[in-house]
Amino acid sequence: MGSRTRENPLAALAALAGLLVAASVALIFFYVPTDADQGFSQRIFYIHVPVALTAYAFFAWGAWKALRHLWKREPGADLESYVAIHQGVIFGVLTLLTGSLWAKISWGNWWLWSESQLVLFLVLFLFYGAYFMLRYSVEPGPARANMCAVYALFGVVLIPISFLAIRLANQLIHPVVFTLQGPQMSGSMFFTFCVSLAAMLTLAATLFHVELAGKRLDSRLRELRELLA
């Protein structure tokens, strides 16, 4: 197995993701203490926040690749940007679903339109959701790649706004855990959170590379089909 994973970095990444996901689940349910304020439902925090941060990371990665496409004309950057945004949208769906469940058990509501953090995340999610409408409404080629790259770059402005909204807003129903004074939780909680975040990031990175490999294979097969026609 060792030499096989050395030859195939994707297999090593997938194994690491599996290990970290198993470790995080074990820590969340068997190690971390129950929160004194929210009780058992606070355990949603260890999946909701890492999933949300992963969505932000992939939207930002998609925008970075879009910039590389426009600036350096990096080959494959358009495809990487598209796959990263796809991952961001998947993790965005998970953020909204897990967040809604947490909101219902903690605040008694599935959704609160008065919460700017929630609304801004929804705006960010819908903005990147519309990216696919743009991409599939234009014929493949350099024009589509340029248009999608510009669109992906516009969206990145929403990331810091969405992230900082809760810190700038005064209506604090949504909890603030990470402040300028550091994380507002015990050491064991912070350790569990870090493991969960690493698990989500490696899981998303694995899915990103698998999807990217599939897309590359698809385009090579299309090229081969054209050559054989």
Partner: peptide, 8 residues
């Protein structure tokens, strides 16, 4: 709710 969040 916790089971639902992780299950999803």
């Amino acid at each position: 709710y916790v089971a639902a969040a992780y299950g999803i």
